[in-house]
Amino acid sequence: MNINILLFGQLTDITGIGTITMEDVADTDSVVQNLHRRFPALATSKYVVAVNKNIITGNTLLTQNSTVALLPPFSGG
């Protein structure tokens, strides 16, 4: 199962890229845990998680080609 992950704002400073593809992840908790293992600085960053363009509040099951987005707060003006 392919999952597309989009990162926004300063989160891409941590990952170095804005798009990541992940296989064999069943739900959003697994995606987040996997990302935190690969990029420890993400674990201390603030962001919300969206699945298929809707913000989720708890662990959410993913399906083939789901898109998971991590959106941090922006403050600049």
């Binding site: 400073d13 201390t44 960053s45 919300v48 941090p72 707060p73 403050s75 600049g76």
Partner: peptide, 20 residues
């Protein structure tokens, strides 16, 4: 509703002098 609480220190890189 988007971010119920403000970020705490260290959760967002400081952007006081960030480029734009």
């Amino acid at each position: 509703h988007l971010f119920p609480n403000p970020p705490k220190q260290g959760e967002v890189l400081s952007c006081a002098e960030a480029g734009v």
